[in-house]
Design a protein around this nucleic acid. Structure first.
Lengths: 212, 212
DNA sequence: CAGCCTACCTAACGCTTGTTAGGTGAGCAA
DNA sequence: TTGCTCACCTAACAAGCGTTAGGTAGGCTG
């Protein structure tokens, strides 16, 4: 009785596995509705299966959520590492920071919904769930702290910490309003944020030009 | 409905009215758990009543939520107006912007949980609910756009719009991490954000300088 | 071939949710 | 006193929630 609808299993050969389809659907739903606002039946429906079948891949809704958040931060960490490798200490501070900001924003906007889910629904999650992701999150933030100390050796550590948090807020909150398919590109956004962060809106560099 | 917002002119009642207690409790719960993550029984319990009794004051959970968001934005609008009145066109751009940033942050951190609720749980709300608050929200953002056009007449409007959105993200996301009772004051945070926004981290002014 | 594993399904479970209907008692007005 | 309003209560409703038990069909392995 199930063999009739051939359309959904005879589509493409390069189709993601069941587990991945669930993961993808969950990330997208968490972005759209947050943790509490997303139901397993929504996720399952978006993945093309039934709610109970989700438990074949994940132990619980919480488990699934954590898996999404982990993938989200993994993409950020990887982007950060690639950015660090592509820059040299001889590069200007502007260039080095720009590269890392662009990497962070790329992870959010050009790497599927995982990082976006992390950034938008981390704070909306129950405290108990949030605590399980905090260690890895802290690790990533520490990488940024070290980068800052390296780029701005003369600025006091406490001040640096504050401005790093501010930069994170600026970058992450762009997930709420920025449309990567709009008339502003991710690269342009990265350039605008970096330029303003370093030199200010009324600073020396042109705010809508790319760095040299 | 939400017709009377006489919250500030109310005399020094030792105990707030029932409706206000519900409103206060709801705002605090929405901050802590978001819209979907907050139950009417939680709100009622925090207000010292039973769940069913909430319906004596509000038509629905959605109605209550909207009332909270409205109060939240009303505090912002009022703070913005007071900031505008307290500044003169002769003041420096730095001073004028600082005053408005401080007003915005004060509304978030020093005006009860209403503005905080607006800022943190606006995006987590269902689309249909969110749409009902968008007009007033847009109105407030327009006030900021006009302020920006006035402060930076030489910057293109499109660039200005982008940086205003960025500033909003910076300010509003501080609600997620900033502790007004910590070792950094709201005034200091406002000064740090304003200074960096205008002159950059490596800009001319000292980043931990105080007003004027 | 049988046997097992994978990836789903159906059908239900106990519980919580927002919401409602109808009551209770205090306070005030006449 | 009676009557009314206000602010709350109890008790329940249907719907939806996360979750579980048990079944089934197809593919792989020995």
């Amino acid at each position: 009785m199930v063999a009739e609808t051939s359309e959904y299993l005879a589509t493409e050969q390069v189709e993601p596995s069941g587990r991945r389809r669930v993961l993808d659907a969950a990330a997208a739903q968490f972005v759209a509705h947050g943790y509490a606002g997303t139901t397993l039946r929504q996720i399952a429906s978006a993945a093309g299966i039934k709610a109970g079948s989700v438990y074949h891949h994940f132990d619980s809704k919480e488990d699934l959520f954590i898996a999404v958040l982990h993938e989200g931060i993994a993409a950020m960490v990887q982007a950060f590492g690639a950015a660090k490798e592509s820059t040299a200490d001889a590069d200007t501070v502007d260039d080095q920071l720009l590269t890392h900001v662009r990497a962070h924003l790329s992870a959010i906007f050009e790497n599927g919904p995982y990082t976006t889910a992390h950034v938008t629904s981390f704070f909306s999650a129950p405290t108990e769930v949030r605590q399980l992701v905090v260690p890895i999150r802290d690790d990533y933030e520490q990488q940024w702290n070290r980068l800052f100390e390296q780029l701005f050796p003369t600025v006091p550590a406490k001040t640096l910490r504050l401005h790093r948090v501010i930069l994170f807020g600026t970058m992450n909150s762009s997930a709420e309003w920025f449309d990567p398919d709009g008339d502003i590109s991710v690269a342009h956004l990265a350039s605008a944020i970096t330029g303003q962060f370093l030199n200010g809106l009324t600073g020396p560099t042109d705010s809508n030009g790319t760095t040299s």
